[in-house]
Design a protein around this nucleic acid. Structure first.
Lengths: 122, 122
DNA sequence: TCCAATAGTTCATTATTTCTGAACTATTGA
DNA sequence: TCAATAGTTCAGAAATAATGAACTATTGGA
């Protein structure tokens, strides 16, 4: 099993970040990791994301996030722990991740008025 | 020739924008269009970008930028004029394009200290 | 009016990337 | 030592992207 690749902060690229975050599954994963700063293992996400995603696919998504410099993965025992590298990325590209996160929120708020469908009063 | 697709501002997605701007050629094109607010025709870019890029490929890149909502294309006579939709995008996702542009600048500054090679004093 | 030139699009093929099931590796706990 | 768990890697299938060739639209002459 080859060692995991984590780029040095100065090798993180905008293209890499934008590409990594242009996929909705990866955005969901990354947002989750970034918000809960407790580390998240890989399989937890099959549940978090609506659709069940094969673990080989998840593994690739994590690799892309990792190699873009967005997360740091470490094996702890039998599972993988992932933490965000937001602070490092923010040092290199100030404000970038924040405005992307904000934009995603705006989009979510617009497309899902779900919550307002309280309870149909029969 | 089918009509060009320009999404309404509320249909512009973060994923679309990030995907469009995760390609260096498209970033170069978009930056150029956004900075010069004079409209730029398609072929001009073969010159602007270092490498010569086939026009069919350029056409696709323009389409992706257009359908992501980043530019507006209009046929004027025999050529195509492209203008940025920055202001609209900024209304929908405040600060997003700016921080991406800033990040790209930071990256450029780091990797190309070219300009400082003023003139070799023989 | 018709034709050549210009600018770009569309189509079809090839190349590249992404997805995914199956097999594999690493670690733990019994 | 073995079964269970968590994830990776590989190889083939599916989806995207790049590009040459043929096409469309417009203009500016002959």
């Amino acid at each position: 099993m080859r060692p995991l690749i984590h780029p040095a902060v100065e090798d993180i690229t905008v293209e890499g970040i934008l590409h990594a975050l242009s996929d909705p599954v990866r955005v969901a994963i990354f947002t989750d990791i970034a918000f809960k700063d407790c580390t998240q293992n890989c399989s937890a996400f099959s549940a978090i994301l609506g659709t069940p995603i094969p673990k080989s696919t998840l593994s690739q998504h994590f690799r892309i996030l990792r190699e873009a410099g967005l997360i740091r993965s470490e094996r702890i025992g039998v599972e993988m722990h992932n933490i965000s590298r937001c602070e490092e990325v923010d040092k290199r590209f100030p404000g970038l991740l924040n405005s992307i996160a904000q934009a995603h929120e705006i989009q979510l708020r617009q497309s899902k008025p779900k919550k307002s469908a309280r309870r149909s009063p029969r």
